[in-house]
Structure formats: structure tokens, C-alpha cells
């Protein structure tokens, strides 16, 4: 059986907000290591990779690997019924037809349980290689969100080029062009999460669909910083670390040059 108790139930809401625009169903894999999800959007252009490590739960029991296929839209509806301060327990049997969500209010004066039907999902599992990224950019997640939103107001595709001087985001649309360059902050005055850091072994440049990048920024409430990893001619990875718990990562296939 599987049983996991999460003290910060609001975290589940944030995780679901970060995926609900991209996928409608997915297999949550329960394993002794933690709860994970890998799923592609319907066009197979982007991939979501979530890990919530067992150590991050207040109580975690998983005897064997259990795939928990869930409709994300319905899951969002159910988790919305939890208060953001509630303690959430997720429970299911080894071959589950149903999964139970137990919500306990912080003051322990209200207990709710919801049972949701599982579904069988045949999804393609991708082997994402352990990559050494040619360029890694760490920046405030709110700044990345703002930047993607601004770029999307002008164009559909953003070209991201990273040099040691900084990261340049460029787009072109019917009304004109936009370029935003973010430079690594030189001074040590900022808090770590307010800094932009660039590490490169060689300059990288590629184009990506802003529609997807904007969806990824729905993960902003999960982390004060976001990390972009790029390798020439390979998908970009956009990672939001969840403190003491794991991550939400997105992979996005590049645009092809004409």
C-alpha cells in the first residue's frame, strides 16, 4: 500500500497549478523514494518531470512501486477542497481503483476525505539523459515569469542566447521586436535568490515557443529561483526546486531553424 502525509498541503495545490495547463492526465508513480510524475503534453513538445521525495513527507510508506493514473482536471477539483493550511494524506492500495485524499485542518477541528477513481494511462516514458549543460542560468523566478509574459505580448517564439555577459531574450512579432538582456549581478549585495548567475562552457542560442514557457512559469510560487539549462540542439530544461522536497522540471523541444 501507499500512504503519504504532507504537512504543507498547500504545496500540492501549487504543484497541480504548475501542470494543469499542460497535461490533462498522468501517472503518479509511487515508489519508496518518493512520488514522481513524468508526462508529456498532447503534442509531445514539452515534458513535465516532478519529484516529491519521501523525506519531504511527515509520514511516508510505500511497499512497492504503484502507478497511480489520475485525471488532472478532477484532481485539481478535489485538491481545491483542501484548505491551503490543511495537512493532506494520500492513500491507495497496491493496485488501486481509487485513491483517498484526507484533509485535516491545522487546528484539527475539521477532517474531510475524498475518494477519486484512478484510470489506466498508457503513456510513453522518455529517457531523459543525465546532461551536462553547456549553459546554466539561475535567476529569480518572478523575473523569468515577467520576462516570458512581456515577450509573449510581442511574439510567439523567443530566442534565448547565453554568453558569459548574460542571457538575451529576443522575439519578433507583427508589431515589431523586443530584446531583453539579463546580466549576472556583479555585486554581492543581493540575497542569493535575487541574483542572476550564468555558467557556460560555450555560448548557446536557440528558439522556443513562448506559449509553453509561459505555462511553465505557473510553477513560480514553488520557488524563488528558476534554473534554465541549455545544450546546443537539445531541449531546454526549466527547473523549479521545491525546498526540502524535490523539483518540478520542464523540458521543451527547440524550434527548428528554416
Amino acid at each position: 500500500m501507499f500512504e503519504a502525509r504532507l504537512l504543507q498541503g498547500g504545496l500540492l495545490k501549487k504543484v497541480l497549478d504548475s501542470i494543469k495547463d499542460i497535461i490533462t492526465e498522468g501517472n503518479f508513480d509511487c515508489s519508496p523514494n518518493g512520488l514522481s510524475l513524468q508526462a508529456m503534453d498532447s503534442s509531445h513538445v514539452s515534458l513535465i518531470d516532478i519529484l516529491l521525495e519521501s523525506e519531504g513527507f511527515e509520514h511516508y510508506r510505500c511497499d512497492r512501486n504503484i502507478p497511480m493514473g489520475l485525471n488532472i482536471t478532477n484532481l485539481v477539483k478535489m485538491i481545491k477542497c483542501a484548505g491551503s493550511e490543511d495537512i493532506v494524506t494520500i492513500k491507495c492500495e497496491d493496485k488501486p481503483d481509487n485513491v483517498t485524499f484526507l484533509f485535516e485542518s491545522k487546528d484539527n477541528d475539521k477532517i474531510s476525505d475524498f475518494e477519486m477513481k484512478t484510470m489506466t494511462i498508457d503513456d510513453e516514458h522518455l529517457l531523459v539523459p543525465d546532461q551536462t549543460y553547456t549553459a546554466v542560468v539561475k535567476m529569480p523566478s518572478a523575473e523569468f515569469q515577467r520576462l516570458c509574459r512581456d515577450m509573449a505580448a510581442i511574439g510567439d517564439t523567443v530566442n534565448i542566447s547565453v554568453t558569459k555577459e548574460g542571457v538575451r531574450f529576443s522575439t519578433t512579432g507583427d508589431m515589431g521586436t523586443a530584446n531583453i538582456t539579463v546580466r549576472p549581478n556583479p555585486s554581492g549585495d543581493q540575497k542569493e535568490e535575487e541574483r542572476t548567475e550564468v555558467q557556460i562552457t560555450e555560448p548557446v542560442s536557440a528558439g522556443f515557443a513562448l506559449r509553453y514557457l509561459n505555462s511553465f512559469t505557473k510553477a513560480t510560487p514553488l520557488s524563488p529561483t528558476v534554473t534554465l539549462g541549455m545544450v546546443p540542439n537539445l531541449p531546454i530544461v526549466v527547473e523549479y526546486k521545491i525546498a526540502d522536497m524535490g523539483h518540478v522540471r520542464y523540458y521543451l523541444a527547440p524550434k527548428i531553424e528554416d
Binding site: 508529456m40 513538445v45 510567439d156 528558439g207 531541449p235 524550434k255
Partner: peptide
Amino acid sequence: SGGQSNLGQFFATR
């Protein structure tokens, strides 16, 4: 802007 590639072109399936 060019066409859109998909992840199957980069990552193997299991």
C-alpha cells in the same frame, strides 16, 4: 520563426 520539433527527436522512449 521555424517549425516546432518534438521531444521524441531527442529523447529515447522506454
